[in-house]
Design a protein around this nucleic acid. Structure first.
Lengths: 200, 200
DNA sequence: ACCTGAACACCGTTCAAGT
DNA sequence: ACCTGAACACCGTTCAAGT
């Protein structure tokens, strides 16, 4: 975790961890089956930082769901590009399972159909994870301040050939502008509204 | 592309491509700045396979958007785990830009607000890519048929402690069951419904 | 401009041997 | 059960030298 927070996920190698622990890479295999298992353990510890609601309040299901996703992004945000390790598969660590169970509970008690809840949980987790990963790319090392990143991106879109890509050029501002938090919560509300629209 | 389709993205290494081309790894650097550039080129060629609507039909914006995402997933599905290379960053290849421009156009002409369209395009691309990547995991090598995968997954959820994770256990069936296409399109419709709900 | 051999600085994992 | 040194079979990239 120390290596991850200091230098990012690429620095988390079996050899590096072993060296920091004053031993050789082979020693780690007495505690962990392979590197994937080590990273999975790291990931579950990050997920353990996500605060969960004390109790499910059915009438506030949208708020509770929303807050959980926001807190999840924040937890990932505290640990560099760990989100990358979480993309494309369903985390099955102890804390991940508890969090998933809570999300499902919030939706089900809120009146969301089981089938909708089952699909929604995948989409929500996906959205949170992918956004957290994008955050980590923007906060990447070599960049000094975030303004440059957005300016560069906007300049890229503006410089595209307007005759062939008219919509992209016209949309340079909304595509790149806006506060990161605002963008994230706007998209999140879009998703939750989609789920809510299935509840009678 | 031949290596990708035959053995997956992990087999696409500079050394492997060089060997197949009858040369050494250093030679590739005369044509490509680094490995990322090679993979980006591969990715853009996959995206070039996505059929785009001949013309935008504003009154059919939801259908056209839906079909584009479905065709995108299909294109990714034809090329192993290439979706992995597309996750977490916005592809900026020529064909990716044309496709993005088309998606934006479909939404804007359909009456979607610019700001909503700008956020929606990220979410839709994300959903498609992440789903395609999950598909590629299910169709992974060692598995013989897909039934085993779902049965294993369902068995995993059912075996969890029902006292601590009641919702997960109760939802084992909807969480793992259902046809892959059906699940994908159900989630997609959820997203498009969320976007449509912002159009007056 | 394009290509090459050889090297550099890394990886994850295994395995026989030790305590 | 836990640890070790040494090795195996790989990586991406650089660099001086060639055509």
């Amino acid at each position: 975790m120390t290596v991850l927070d200091a230098e990012g996920l690429d620095a988390v190698t079996m050899r590096r961890i072993a060296t920091d622990l004053g031993t050789g890479p082979a020693s780690l295999y007495a505690h962990v089956a392979d590197k994937d298992e080590l990273v999975a353990a790291l990931l579950d510890r990050v997920i353990s930082e996500v605060p969960l609601p004390e109790r499910i309040e059915p009438e506030r299901w949208q708020d509770q769901l929303r807050q959980l996703i926001i807190d999840g992004r924040a937890a990932f945000g505290r640990h560099r590009d760990i989100a990358r390790a979480s993309m494309g598969f369903i985390p099955t660590g102890q804390h991940a399972l508890v969090a998933s169970n809570m999300m499902l509970g919030i939706m089900l008690e809120g009146g969301v159909e089981p089938r909708v809840a089952a699909y929604a949980i995948d989409i929500l987790a996906l959205y949170m994870t992918a956004y957290a990963y994008e955050d980590s790319l923007e906060n990447a090392p070599s960049k000094t301040h975030t303004e440059d990143f957005h300016e560069q991106l906007q300049a890229f879109f503006t410089a595209l050939p307007a005759d062939r890509l008219p919509y992209l050029v016209a949309m340079a501002e909304p595509l790149t502008g806006g506060d990161g938090n605002e963008r994230f919560e706007f998209g999140l509300d879009l998703l939750i509204r989609g789920i809510a629209s299935t509840v009678k």
